[in-house]
Design a protein around this nucleic acid. Structure first.
Length: 491
RNA sequence: CGGGGUGUAGCGUAGUCCGGUCAUCGCGCCUGGUUUGGGACCAGGAGGUCGCAAGUUCGAAUCUUGCCACCCCGACCA
């Protein structure tokens, strides 16, 4: 049978959509711009959540929950914040429906108009800082280190499964500190947590950097980010961490009394990653045979498929498979034994391959005789016969290899698609050709960045942390520059 | 929100120009049998407001108008 899904070469965005829908990660819903995350996709998200949540707690944060709705007036308190989000807010204006007078369905009851409209949160800084005002009085109340897992709504014009949806799931950390120094350290610390997570769990290498003024979060003094490179040569912002200065403290009048008895505004950070990481995961590793999952995030790390002709064989295989499953589970390996009689082995092979299960163990009568199993790894598609003796440890080792191979593969892809350019022609050729991360000199002005974006659709993804200082000339204007910055077309 | 495209069974589709046994085919689904080391085969069967709503007509999947959804390209954005 031929494949019924697109390849990257043929149609990259169709390939992406096919993976999301056919690997059962998510689907479009009856609500425009909103998706249904299906059980298989959601269990990957749960893995991400569990890992991140532990990392947050290990760095001293606690979870809390703030309202979905934000009074409209809160929004206008921080000028650049409201400007940044105003264009994409869903607004609640009424609180009641009634039967339509013509008897056909129900309509909004105009008598039930809210005195003050409520915004469905696109992010929670305003409601949180309004709350923090009451929580913070003294330096003894600081630092305040809170995270919330929530959904947010940004009314997007154009949506794509996981990458940009009107409603998405995320976590947002909001912290308050006594000093500027401490808040900056917090923002950097959480950026490092994200980078660690991306590299060691998602197996995606990321650039750590700061955003240019244009790309900065609405209301932030400094935005830090991790940027990943996708297989089509486009960049994807995988996480952000903001140093908010005293902007929100001033807007919401959050002050504390210091040891010296003086009142001061507190210093703030916020940081978040979203279900967009699912998109990054897909586009970083998957191939023309479907999804490829790094073992640390795979809902099933190993699937066991029995091959048999007779009931008697099937019974013996069930027994052997149970034994193998148990030995793997003893090493905390997540195993699924697929003993469904309704599908043939070949069908199951294709199915689990498309769903990205890292390791497949096939076991049949010949294996029972020889004391072997057939082991296939998803990342390289290699198959090998393994002795059953000490199989669990061998599989554990293999999972580790797959995890690091995926990272190495993604890293060398990024290296091959990272270029230094010095002239405008080179810049345009690179951006419009292969894409990737393009390191170029920039004169540091907003105008130049906007002009470059207008001409090439490329934006400054970040100014890498600890960037090498180097004299040069701006790739567009020829004005002097002290360092190269990273350009790319982005999601 | 602008430009383009598409909507026919769960999925993918033929038919649309040229109205009239045209609702086609494949996958999937159900039943029975044979199968099972890379998506099995045979036989039988179920499943459709042809995106929605008006209109034109003796008659509309097919023509007209409006609306909705999705996809691609722009603007905006995590």
């Amino acid at each position: 049978m031929s494949k019924d899904f697109a390849t990257r070469e043929e149609n990259y965005s169709k390939w992406y959509n096919d993976i999301v829908t056919k690997a059962d990660l998510a689907e479009n819903s009856a609500v425009r711009g909103c998706m249904v995350i299906k059980p298989y996709g959601y269990s990957i998200w749960e893995k991400m959540q569990a890992t991140l949540d532990k990392m947050f707690k290990d760095t001293g944060h606690e979870n809390a929950y703030f309202p979905l709705f934000i009074p409209k007036s809160f929004f206008s308190k921080e000028a650049s914040h409201v400007e940044g989000f105003a264009k994409e807010c869903a607004v609640v204006t009424h609180y009641r429906l009634k039967n339509s007078p013509d008897g056909k369905g129900i309509i909004v009851d105009e008598d039930a108009k809210l005195e003050e409209e409520l915004i469905v949160r696109p992010t929670s800084e305003t409601i949180i800082w309004d709350t923090y005002r009451n929580w913070i009085q003294s330096y003894r109340d600081l630092p305040l280190l809170i995270n919330q897992w929530a959904n947010v709504v940004r009314w997007e014009m154009r949506t794509r499964l996981f990458l940009r949806t009107a409603e998405f799931l995320w976590q947002e950390g909001h912290t308050a500190h006594a000093t500027q120094q401490e808040a900056i350290e917090e923002a950097e610390k959480m950026l490092n947590v994200y980078a660690d997570f991306a590299e060691n769990f998602l197996a995606i290498p990321v650039l750590k950097g700061v955003k240019s003024e244009n790309e900065r979060f609405a209301g932030a003094v400094e935005t830090y980010c991790i940027e990943a490179l996708m297989q089509d040569g486009k960049a994807l912002q995988a996480g952000t961490s903001h140093f908010l200065g005293q902007n929100f403290a001033k807007a919401f009048d959050v002050k504390f009394t210091g040891k010296d008895g003086k009142q001061e505004y507190v210093w703030a950070t916020s940081w978040g990653v979203s279900t967009r990481l699912m998109g990054a995961l897909i586009m970083a590793h998957s191939d023309d045979n479907g999804l490829v999952l790094p073992p640390k995030l795979a809902p099933h790390q190993v699937v066991i498929v029995p091959i048999y002709k007779t009931d008697e064989e099937f019974a013996r295989l069930n027994e052997k498979a149970a034994e193998i499953k148990k030995s793997l589970e003893a090493l905390n390996i997540r195993v699924k034994y697929d003993n469904r009689d309704t599908h043939k082995p070949g069908w199951k092979f294709a199915e689990y391959e498309f769903k990205g299960v890292p390791v497949r163990i096939a076991i049949g009568p010949r294996d029972l005789e020889n004391g072997t199993v057939e082991v296939a790894r998803r990342d390289t598609k290699e198959k090998a016969s393994y002795q059953q003796i000490d199989l669990a440890h061998k599989i554990e080792h293999l999972l580790g290899q797959i995890q690091s191979n995926l990272y190495q593969k993604a890293l060398s892809f990024r290296e091959q698609n990272t270029t230094n350019v010095d002239t405008w022609d080179e810049f345009v050729n690179q951006i419009e050709g292969k894409g990737g991360f393009v390191y170029a000199h920039w004169d540091g002005t907003k105008e130049t960045e906007e002009k470059i974006k207008e001409l090439t659709k490329a934006t400054i993804r970040c100014i890498p942390l600890n960037n090498k200082k180097e004299e040069g000339k701006c790739v567009l204007t020829g004005k002097p520059s002290t360092q190269r910055v990273v350009f790319a077309r982005a999601y």
